[in-house]
Amino acid sequence: MNQVQFYRWLVIINCAVPLVLLSWDAWRGQLGANPASDALHVTGMLSLVCLLLSLTITPLRWWTGWGGWISFRRALGVYAFVYAVIHLGIYVVFDRALSLSSTLMEISSRRFLQIGGLSLLLMVPLAVTSTNAMLRKVGAKRWKQLHRLAYVIAILAVMHYYMLVKSDVRQPLVFAGLLTGLLAVRVHRAYAPTRTPQRV
């Protein structure tokens, strides 16, 4: 295992740590007064954090010049998806009592759920095409285009969070600010003429 591979494993292991602790707390009945709501909040948060971390990889590559960063991105993206799926699972099982009809009813009548749902739905093709084999199959160029959906997914996820908060929107605004920064550096680079001579 070379050093970069080792770092990748570090990322993979560390992203699982919150899940292990969350499960441990749940098992021991230590998720507080409202465990379902707590687990829902925590998994949503973890998904959002992984998502934003995955979007910091490319800027880090530009700034540090180290190509190794890229090998963490897949893990972060897949974890964002996994946490989002668990998030939805908790919602369906505990909030909607496993009732498909009531889940669909709620989603159809709540804008913030539609936006969160769409975000998760858009993650599916990215998760499916996350393997090396799929990358080869899809082709690097199309794969890259497809995975730009990550920007849309992150925007929707932050919106979902912002919309569900009762009044104290400071935390969702922090995420919105970070995401805006991450997207802004990309826009800046794309349109800075000296850095993209191939574009006309």
């Binding site: 560390n14 740590v17 919150p18 602790l21 969350l22 707390d25 230590q30 998720l31 507080g32 707590d38 925590v42």
Partner: peptide, 12 residues
């Protein structure tokens, strides 16, 4: 470090 950060943000 990850575990302590998580625990600090999610105290029991």
């Amino acid at each position: 470090a990850t575990a302590s950060l998580y625990r600090a943000l999610n105290p029991t």
